[in-house]
Design a protein around this nucleic acid. Structure first.
Lengths: 236, 236
DNA sequence: GGGAATAATATGTCTAGACATAATTTTCGG
DNA sequence: CCGAAAATTATGTCTAGACATATTATTCCC
């Protein structure tokens, strides 16, 4: 814990340390603001700032009249990076290219419509891309882009930038939904990813919305033997 | 956007809406604090609180002298819930039980030591648990608990509460690392999870630390045909 | 004793200032 | 024209109050 230059951060860190060390288990009452004012010799606004930050990060719960208590641990959560392929390859120091296997404007079928929660017959740009590191396929991505929300995609050939990166730079999103599954690759998928038929694959589905209107869905298949999703996290 | 009862939240929400809608793309300059003071007719502290919150959530970047700008979009991230089995089953309205297949105090082997980054020969409690919903196995969990960090685990039989929930209630953690992979179940794993050999499974590895000292590792195998990890997220 | 009114308490929001600090622009001397 | 010093600007931190509001404890009347 670095020596904080400012008081509210120092107060925050000292309380945080006691909670994370287990010295103050869940349910413990935090000293009330006037006590902390006296202890640190500062104004109430300053301790309030520290406590508000702790409440925002979920470490404590503040209640009027009764004061603040250490919050119960939340469900563990994992935060996973969903890497941009070009950037990921550059970081790993391998060459990157992608092949567009398929690019077509089509109307949303019933299965996809139900998955996405949109009426069928909406115009979508459907693209299938294989991402390749050093000549080896690392992911097969099937993507739908809502042309009503992103009309510019209709005239984009995605020759230089893959669809995912293109969207990321251009279209803001406000909500996303993810599902991660394991499936056995069928013959076609196995061929595309240069693996044996039946081999386990990670299927990552990602759907994004902008202010309630659907933007895009990506269903990305990663070879199980070559890829894992990793993440680091701190509690609450 | 709900009408905020308080001003700093309203200011925050109005700016947030403009950013998420794309009206203010990355790089756009946010009105400086004195402009916002004039616009909302309030003190500087109030607009500062709104802008600080936006900066904390990563939506804007604040810089002295030049003012604040809308931040560039970050890498998409997925937040996944790692559910507690008992709670998850209760929510889903199914019965829950678990079987302890194996429980032994042992010394850390070289492979696990390397995976965890701890010297070999550390004393660990090794437990294997199968989690069962309505008579159907839904996960096979192999867990290591560092007895140096959690000595109380040595005398715990885990008859009523499974090891994961037991730890969650008792032991605080400050850092976690996750890896998610897809693997083909071997004969033994397939038998335990009542699935065909070779079927695709999700393998979720989770390791947690408390202030630098290792607490526990869980390697949980989910049947690919019955389980997916899902999450919802907002950007930044 | 029960229930309603009242008091006490801790947080929530906000103000109108102050000084500090970082970064840029302007000024000025050579 | 160049580089150093000074001024300017916007944010960062902090104070000492104020009133609002939610919640619990107490008092008082029936």
């Amino acid at each position: 814990m670095a020596a904080a230059p400012n008081l509210h951060q120092r107060i925050r860190e000292e309380i945080e340390a006691r909670i994370l060390s287990g010295e103050w288990p869940p349910g413990t009452r935090i000293p009330v603001e006037h006590e902390l004012m006296a202890r640190y010799g500062c104004a109430r606004m300053t301790v309030s700032k520290a406590l508000s930050a702790l409440a925002t990060s979920g470490l404590i719960q503040r209640r009027r009249r009764t004061g603040s208590v250490v919050a119960a641990p939340t469900q563990p959560r994992a935060i996973l990076q969903i890497p941009d392929f070009a950037q990921d390859a550059a970081t790993a120091g391998v060459s990157y290219r992608f092949d567009i296997l398929h690019r077509k404007v089509e109307r949303l079928g019933p299965a996809a419509a139900q998955r996405i929660g949109l009426p069928a017959d909406q115009e979508m740009l459907s693209i299938e891309t294989v991402h390749i590191y050093d000549g080896e396929p690392v992911a097969d991505e099937r993507r739908l882009i809502n042309l009503a929300a992103v009309p510019a995609a209709r005239d984009e050939a995605f020759e230089r930038i893959p669809p995912g990166s293109w969207l990321l730079e251009r279209v803001p999103w406000s909500d996303a939904e993810h599902a991660i599954r394991a499936i056995n690759a069928n013959a076609e998928q196995a061929r595309r990813l240069a693996m044996a038929a039946g081999a386990a694959c990670l299927l990552v589905e990602r759907r994004t919305w902008q202010a309630g209107s659907f933007i895009t869905e990506a269903r990305t298949l990663y070879p199980g033997d070559r890829h894992s999703l990793i993440g680091r996290f701190s509690p609450r």
